[in-house]
């Protein structure tokens, strides 16, 4: 399962990051690392990007990038 499949309002734990390069480092720097708990908060009015809560603050990433984050 990836972060993209997590329903609105539900949480999941990060298992693996399949993204690469700058995006991967940026996502990790912002606290989405292995084992981190992520909650899907909101979808933007046009459906993308999404708003997450991670490590106690709100972060926005795109669905395409969320699809590269494996969760459980």
């Amino acid at each position: 399962m990836t972060l993209r499949d997590v329903e609105l309002g539900k949480s999941a734990d990060v298992v693996k990051l399949n993204s690469e390069g700058v995006i991967k480092r940026r996502i990790m720097d912002m606290g989405i690392t292995k084992g981190a708990r992520v909650t899907v908060n909101k979808f933007a009015p046009l459906g993308d990007p999404i708003e997450l809560t991670v490590r106690g603050y709100n972060l926005s990433i795109r669905k395409a990038d969320a699809a590269l984050i494996e969760v459980e």
Partner: peptide, 12 residues
């Protein structure tokens, strides 16, 4: 070049 990342904090 690189595809554009969109990773952005939404401050309170």
């Amino acid at each position: 070049g690189e595809p554009s990342p969109f990773v952005m904090e939404l401050p309170p």
